[in-house]
């Protein structure tokens, strides 16, 4: 993101927040009118009415400052180990995300290495890898969690497996492309050096594929988080941001849902940025000038 984009982004964000406040008034108005009618309040001035719509207990659409307040108390209002703390739930989700992401990246790289080095696995695996992503795995996430729970595998592992299934795909596709970027002339040079297949891999193919690896990992870590959140939807007891979403929806706690949603979004953003930093670091070590 270049500096020149900052002002347009801020303007667009400002418009979105203003629009949000306006929608909060519109969507919360009917219920507020009912409340006021019950309390025999007539002729509430408009400015006061707007204030009321921003301060409901279970609004249809919470105002931005209500969500921010809920996030603040959720993060700093309780001890980090207390189940009331949003940081506690975010930590649970983060653990499953990272484990799944690590497993998925590892699997993706291994598959890509196989596909690039073996013609038969290229032909037999690649169509199925693509087909595997048309299976709506998120939709069966609850079943994976319940099924593994029935044989005693509980906690972080089932969620991580779902994250793995989602995140290995971009890594395979990116790495197959990346490992194939060396041109014939470069491979020929390695041959004139009498390089073994392992040396060709370590000194030519692997370095050439690093940019592709990081691009894939950015996509992969974002969908790992989605996988972990959806995996939590079926397991009330375990905790995590997905559980906050679910209990919020059962109890009509809209502010809680929005707060969990924003924490998840912030987590996704932080993770993607961290991978971006890793990319910069790797690039610098490999001699790329920024």
């Amino acid at each position: 993101m270049s500096r020149g984009n900052l002002i347009p982004i801020l303007v667009v964000l400002g418009v979105i927040v203003l629009f949000w406040y306006a929608m909060a008034v519109v969507m919360n108005a009917p219920w507020q009118q009912t409340l006021n009618a019950r309390a025999n309040l007539s002729d509430v001035p408009f400015t006061e009415f707007v204030g009321q719509t921003f301060a409901q207990d279970k609004p249809v659409l919470p105002a931005p400052h209500q969500v921010v307040g809920a996030i603040w108390t959720g993060l700093f209002g309780a001890a980090i180990t207390a189940p009331r703390s949003l940081a506690f739930h975010a930590g649970i989700t983060l653990g499953a995300t990272l484990l799944g992401f690590a497993l998925g990246t590892l699997l993706g790289v291994l598959l890509a290495v196989m596909i690039v080095h073996n013609n038969a696995s290229d032909r037999s695996l690649m169509p199925w890898i693509i087909a595997s992503q048309t299976v709506p795995i998120l939709a069966i996430a609850p079943m994976v969690v319940v099924g593994l729970g029935a044989v005693g595998v509980t906690g972080m592992v089932p969620k991580a497996l779902i994250s793995m299934y989602l995140s290995f795909f971009p890594v395979v596709v990116g790495m197959v492309k990346g490992l194939r970027t060396p041109e014939p002339i470069q491979l020929d040079l390695m041959r004139t050096y009498n390089a073994s297949p392992l040396q060709v891999f370590m000194k030519l193919r692997w370095p050439a594929s690093i940019p592709f690896l990081f691009a894939s990992m950015k996509v992969g870590i974002a969908i790992s988080l989605i996988g972990a959140v959806v995996g939590e939807l079926s397991n009330n007891a375990g905790g995590g941001l997905g559980v906050r979403l679910l209990t919020g929806s059962y109890n009509g706690q809209t502010i809680q849902i929005w707060a969990a949603l924003f924490i998840a979004a912030a987590l996704a953003a932080i993770l993607v940025i961290l991978v971006g930093w890793g990319e910069k670091l790797a690039n610098r070590r490999m001699g790329v000038r920024a």
Binding site: N5, I7, I9, V12, L13, V229, A265
Partner: peptide, 17 residues
Amino acid sequence: RGLLPIGNFVSALPIIG
């Protein structure tokens, strides 16, 4: 310039929530 970075960012979010 304002909408594209935001759009890219939102595409990576767990919208399913």
